[in-house]
Design a binder for these strands. Sequence first.
DNA 1: CGCATTTTTGATTCTTATCAAGACGAGTGG
DNA 2: CCACTCGTCTTGATAAGAATCAAAAATGCG
Lengths: 219, 219
Amino acid sequence: MLNSLSRDDDVSSLHALKPCLDAPWTHQRSISARTGIPLARSGAPLTFRLRQGCVALFRELSDNRRQILDVFGPGWVVSGECVDLGECRAIAVCPVRIEFIDPFQNRKAITDATRRMLIRAQAHSLLLGRKTATERVASALLDLADQFSRQGHGGRGSFLLYLSRSELADWLGLTHETISRCLSRFKRDRLIAFTQPELITIRDRQALQALATGAMRAA
Amino acid sequence: MLNSLSRDDDVSSLHALKPCLDAPWTHQRSISARTGIPLARSGAPLTFRLRQGCVALFRELSDNRRQILDVFGPGWVVSGECVDLGECRAIAVCPVRIEFIDPFQNRKAITDATRRMLIRAQAHSLLLGRKTATERVASALLDLADQFSRQGHGGRGSFLLYLSRSELADWLGLTHETISRCLSRFKRDRLIAFTQPELITIRDRQALQALATGAMRAA
DNA sequence: CGCATTTTTGATTCTTATCAAGACGAGTGG
DNA sequence: CCACTCGTCTTGATAAGAATCAAAAATGCG
């Protein structure tokens, strides 16, 4: 399970070029869309900071059922220390820039990220266990808008939905058809707008928020 | 941010009796079944170690939908630091003994518990998002058996299912009727046995494991 | 013992998955 | 430039799985 032959990671080659410097970690890597990102090397967990783009963590079942555990935008620290390395993988959802960091010099960043990931995972459990399809999609849109709209894609309230319908489905525990139907309904009801499928504009954040929290139910 | 006026917690009263000792944290509390356990006091997160019994963390939606996020047995460290204090609550599932601990003297225990909770939450997301009812119940039985069977309830392979059918349902994203039907089928198929509803015996761990991992599907 | 709650089981409904087919867009090669 | 292909997205028809509704049976408690 050791190194060598791993052409999918240029850390080692760069390290070889600059042997034993005290900052072998601070360099960036570009990774193309739909490519895996290593969470460990030789069994040791790796940690990276996401500089640009969008990364998804996921697990799979023996057949082709897949669950995306979380979706990260720029700034997140993602570590193999806080996943089940045997079961969990990371993938670039679009072209990304990441920077592997030294886990020993970044303890606090890692524990902070772990805590935030746990709180997000708990909110997501509520979504997966108890929300309807409509509520799930509304929640996801708000989450992604928060993470990705400040990067100025297409103007105020709009954001690039890096995830495909299928990836959204794997995140929300639904099918891509259900995702598509929900988005179409939101568009018809003027809660959102889109002409291209992956550039979404939030038109009624309040209504989406009400849906997302389950407030639109009889109770 | 300390003590006073909180009558729902006898830490303060004991603290008052033994003022300013250097170990105000190391005493145990008993909490009766179906009672809430505070995760914060005056806005500051609390941390406790579970000595005996079973504790559940949960979140709720505006109507009466509830999602149990995780279920803990003896030994777990549960901290308000790693939940959304505004949304998340803890409850004793049976009579429990807990010990509030000093977060500053137990950093490592808390970060370790946080990491373990995150990994469990990720596995649970896979369960909630992608597993069938049967697979979910099989997974839960194995999880609970691991946490609670070593305490010698009823002999080898048996364990006390502290959770009611409804609580199991709220953990697994199902209804109590579905839980009951799954358990009945498992009993009929000799995967488990029970005469009282809450004392379960695992009769075919292998088969349950195969179900739990989704291996029994066509693929 | 009687009462309240939980559990079990059955009948029916509903939401979402599955299956199917067309629309659309991006890229390719003639 | 256009025909062609491939993948994603959309929409519709149908099916399946779990929820809901309902009512016993079992259990626990005062």
